[in-house]
Amino acid sequence: MENSGEAPAIESSREIYLRLMTEDSTAEWEKKWEEGETKWDLGVPTPIISHLIDTGSLPNGKALVPGCGTGYDVLALACPDRYVVGLDISKTSVERSIKMFSTLPNAKYFSFLCEDFFTWESDGDFDLIFDYTFFCAFEPALRPLWAQLMDKLLKPGGELITLMYPIDDRIGGPAYKVSAYEYQKVLIPLGFEATSIEDNELAVGSRKGKEKIGRWKKTSTLHSIL
């Protein structure tokens, strides 16, 4: 075969997404919620988030919880000083959350949306994003796109909190194995600074010893090209 002299085309992040995230994969998540196969759903707010709220360690303003599931973390974070958007791809999950929580006293400080994080059109400007093991739920090839969207959604100076799990030697997924380095290699080039990466001492059950909490500050004002 002759060499045309042209460099091979580099597959864009969007092209990778369209190749990996099919209608079947979306239906699989919907089926899990319909059948109650949601072992990741604690039924209460994530302990580390409750701790950070109680100690006043989180920024106020506008917050996002992608892959929020039932939305207990959304409820915990929502307050007069912080409006929270809970995002999930499952219609069943979102409808249940709205039914369960829409009459709560703090309901005016949160909302639930049924959207695909990777195609969701948002004006961004979030002060805080909490990734509750969302990073491990999709194919590792999508992690650069995840980082680019976090960059797009956060305000300069905003904070991203990542609950890093599972840190182990498993093959395949979901959940796909992670490490602190996997986060660093996609976030740091976009201008994120790791302000802390620590073992999560409040990890629940079998997650103890397999989970870290990462806190990232967006220091750059430049968005990558999606």
Rank of each mutant, 00 (worst) to 15 (best):
L202Q: 08
F118M: 02
E35N: 12
Q148E: 15
L222T: 14
R19S: 13
L163F: 11
D41I: 00
V74G: 06
G86L: 03
G43R: 04
Y132P: 00
A107W: 03
L160T: 09
A203L: 01
A147P: 04
L190A: 11
I16D: 04
R207W: 13
K91S: 15
F138T: 06
K155M: 07
S50Q: 06
W33I: 11
E139T: 09
Y109W: 13
Y17N: 05
I167S: 10
Y181V: 06
T195L: 06
G205H: 14
A9T: 06
A63N: 09
I161E: 02
Y17T: 05
S25V: 09
E28K: 12
D168N: 15
P80F: 01
Y83W: 05
I10N: 03
E115H: 11
Y183M: 10
F101V: 05
W146V: 02
R19W: 00
G209E: 05
C136T: 13
E28I: 03
K210C: 11
E28Q: 13
A180L: 09
V85N: 02
L187W: 05
A107H: 15
L160M: 11
N200H: 05
G86N: 10
G209M: 10
G56V: 00
A180K: 10
T92K: 11
A194N: 11
P45S: 15
I10Q: 10
T92R: 09
L222R: 14
Y181E: 13
I53P: 06
S4V: 00
D125W: 01
G158I: 00
F192L: 03
G173R: 09
E34C: 11
G5K: 00
S12Y: 02
F118P: 01
Y72S: 08
N3S: 11
N60C: 12
L87P: 08
S4W: 00
R96M: 13
E121R: 08
V186A: 07
D168Y: 07
T133I: 11
Y183G: 07
S111F: 00
V85G: 09
P166T: 08
R14I: 13
L64M: 02
V94I: 15
L87M: 07
Y83M: 04
K208I: 07
I171M: 11
A27G: 04
G191Y: 05
E198M: 03
D151P: 03
F126R: 04
K185F: 03
K155V: 04
E30V: 04
K217E: 06
D41T: 07
I10H: 04
D123I: 05
E193W: 06
L160P: 06
D81N: 14
N60G: 15
F110V: 01
F134A: 10
